[in-house]
Design a protein around this nucleic acid. Sequence first.
DNA 1: GCTGATTTGTTGTTTATCCAACACATTTAA
DNA 2: TTAAATGTGTTGGATAAACAACAAATCAGC
Lengths: 191, 191
Amino acid sequence: MTQSKVDPRILRTRKLIMDAFIELSEKKEFKDITVKDITAEAMINRATFYYHFEDIYDLLDKSLSEVLLVNLNCDTYQNSELNEEVLISVFKVITNFQRSLSNRCHRGYEDTIARIIREQLEFIFYKMLLKQRPADDEQALKLTAVMLSWGIYGASVEWRRKGDEVQPETFIKSAVPYIISGIDSNSKING
Amino acid sequence: MTQSKVDPRILRTRKLIMDAFIELSEKKEFKDITVKDITAEAMINRATFYYHFEDIYDLLDKSLSEVLLVNLNCDTYQNSELNEEVLISVFKVITNFQRSLSNRCHRGYEDTIARIIREQLEFIFYKMLLKQRPADDEQALKLTAVMLSWGIYGASVEWRRKGDEVQPETFIKSAVPYIISGIDSNSKING
DNA sequence: GCTGATTTGTTGTTTATCCAACACATTTAA
DNA sequence: TTAAATGTGTTGGATAAACAACAAATCAGC
């Protein structure tokens, strides 16, 4: 999966940069953070930053992806079934993640964040579907993953719009059965 | 004072190593910590460790020196007088420092730790005396600093021996006037 | 004792990082 | 508007760190 031979300096430096970015994000808004701030906090040269990232938006992208991936604990999900329990669990992770982000004041970058969340969801949903139904058409599974990711993300937006009145778990539970029945029991498609 | 041109990589790596060492010291005893453990925690190569430190004892030495120096807030002391207030303050720092060390289980290295503490005390006392009495003989001031450092350290040993019954402040206050009167008012020596 | 495994230091070569420039864009204040 | 200051992104040459391989010391169990 991941390259086994990657220079430790690269891993260390990426970690230093990302940690510095997370640290700064808790103090300032994203728009007020400069590359210089980050490299100073990370104790690395500014040129080194550009060796690893295109620009600060690329860093935002990759940092959030990684944090989310860790939260989603990808290995766990990839080895379990895409059932009601998992969908509820994923929804809870997403709502938690967005709550932690809003504390860190990334206003104005909702689109980027939304894209990152959807991409990650799509990625793990697709992996799970592939394992669950290896015989099915890949394009169909891919599209299913896309729709599920948009659906889950949309639900989280709706949940926030309602002002966090109910628990994420109870909120998503009302809709999940409709989704699951399409995935779980209606298995005669392409079968 | 310090070199103005030192490669940032050196500072960063030293910090990574020392932080890793402090981190590990909170989990294991010193005797159970290997160079490999430290370099793994610090995310650096083992060879790099030997580029910066002679061995693990050298690291212990330099780490404790630095931590103590930060605690003593050297700049502050160097710009103030060597009076009763300062001596009490220094004594409190030392007792606090030793308490934090005993939590970290460095048993068997009391001698090394004692030496480090005395060397640091001697260093700042000498600097203060030099400023306070620039006209006096340097060797005499140096010896005074040596005796003061041993005295303060010995007092901390005695304080621990009594089982932390009294506050460090009240403990040292009983003896300080005798010390101070020799430094402060009896200024006709060499004068 | 012995054997295998682990740790300790060392060395030559490769590579990621540093640095000092540089041109260009953006902001700030006069 | 202009000028000074600050931030962005790039480059070539210098250097610290990584790596692999090594001998030697230390420690474990037999």
